[in-house]
Design a protein around this nucleic acid. Structure first.
Lengths: 220, 220
DNA sequence: TAATAAAACAGTGAATACACCGATATTTAG
DNA sequence: CTAAATATCGGTGTATTCACTGTTTTATTA
């Protein structure tokens, strides 16, 4: 039986490329093709989910972070391979902490994709060389200082909220998008203000950008 | 004889997607596949150049702008169709001024790509609907709506204000720093909202960063 | 010099953001 | 198993932001 793969990316072209690459590998097949997380969820049969999800980070409606969290809690057997443009450390580390199995960039060759898929199938982690070196640096160089947390880690929900803050959405709209009450959003905000030592929403945006959790290109 | 197409994009995946789409259209074939402008030039035979070049903007070594200029001066019969990630880029106009024939985003469907290619083959211009509406007004003389471009310049005071917006200062504090009344600040803000087509202060910050008026490192 | 654009200023009211106070259920970690 | 952290929700009140309406003075430039 073939290994089932889902391809989730809002760019039709990239999707076509990925599907094409996967389909041409013997033993692999693409069962789901979705434009964003929401679309993926709608198409997913909980009883026979895909084995591996190729997931983009930047997507409208429901982005890669949210989708990864959903997969972790709803499809424990399904593993995620992130296919992204970005390779900045904090974003990658955040993703790995969310239970993602691998990370490759969009200029990977078919051979690299194949290798990544195979390794993840065997429950091994896989990161692109480009990405890998950066992470190595991150853990070796500034493991003593620089990391603003240990104690003040941003939680997953707060992180998703933080990303949505970097837009023109009001808090009320963010609440709707995250399916929680505006009060909960207030709490996320207050906690982040405290943790990140800022006082305004612009402060949050600045922190997100300076820390690399958000890239300028991510901004709408 | 088939219409010859070159695909120039640094992302292998996108390239694969584009090639796949073009090859599946009867009457069209891909003769060149390149990772950047330099690579494209090296592969191009000046005596039998491609009819249409699918060109990405952001590429290492030699980007879309340079490549478009080179094509215009060396391959007068070859027409360029830009395939870019972002539609909002003010670069679109610059590109069209450089003699580019069309513009589509990377989330276009195969049908849209086909349509664009066909129109350009007949020497008609083609822009994505998403992009198109914004540009249309720009080129029509009796337009009221304006794009954040040369035509609608940010004044000196507004610019200083814009930079100060990228901080945790309240408008009142900014007013104090700029030695004007808070009302005046309101006017600066309202004018920028109008000119830059945003609705919130975070929108201003995003514009400043994306346009390069402010660098991430400048942020306090 | 007349027309135009920029810079400064102002009122009102509604929407949003922020600052305190609090709570409970669940998950995670020591 | 307890303690801490997380995720969720609530009330009250103030501060700030934003949207709409204007005027006046000062440069610029055609």
């Amino acid at each position: 039986m073939n290994t089932k793969v889902a391809v989730v990316d809002d760019h039709q072209l990239v999707r076509t490329g990925l599907v094409q690459m996967v389909q041409s590998l013997p033993g692999w097949e693409v069962t789901i093709e979705a434009a964003n997380g929401k679309d993926f969820i709608d198409q997913t049969n909980l009883l026979s989910p895909p084995d591996i999800v190729l997931l983009d980070i930047r997507m409208p409606i429901m982005d890669g972070y949210e989708t990864a969290l959903w997969i972790r809690s709803h499809l424990p057997e399904t593993r995620v391979l992130v296919v992204s443009m970005v390779s900045r450390e904090p974003a990658v580390i955040r993703m790995l902490r969310m239970g993602v199995y691998g990370f490759i960039t969009k200029n990977s060759t078919q051979a690299e994709l194949h290798q990544a898929l195979s390794r993840i199938q065997q429950k091994q982690f896989h990161v692109n060389e480009l990405v890998g070196n950066r992470i190595f640096h991150y853990f070796s160089e500034n493991s003593t200082e620089q990391l603003p947390d240990e104690k003040n880690t941003i939680t997953d929900r707060e992180f998703i909220f933080l990303r949505k803050c970097c837009s023109e959405l009001t808090y009320r709209q963010i609440a709707k998008e995250m399916y929680v009450s505006p009060r909960t959003i207030d709490t996320y905000r207050d906690h982040l203000f405290e943790k990140l030592q800022v006082r305004t929403r612009v402060g949050l945006v600045i922190y997100a950008l300076r820390s690399g959790l958000i890239e300028v290109d991510d901004l709408v």
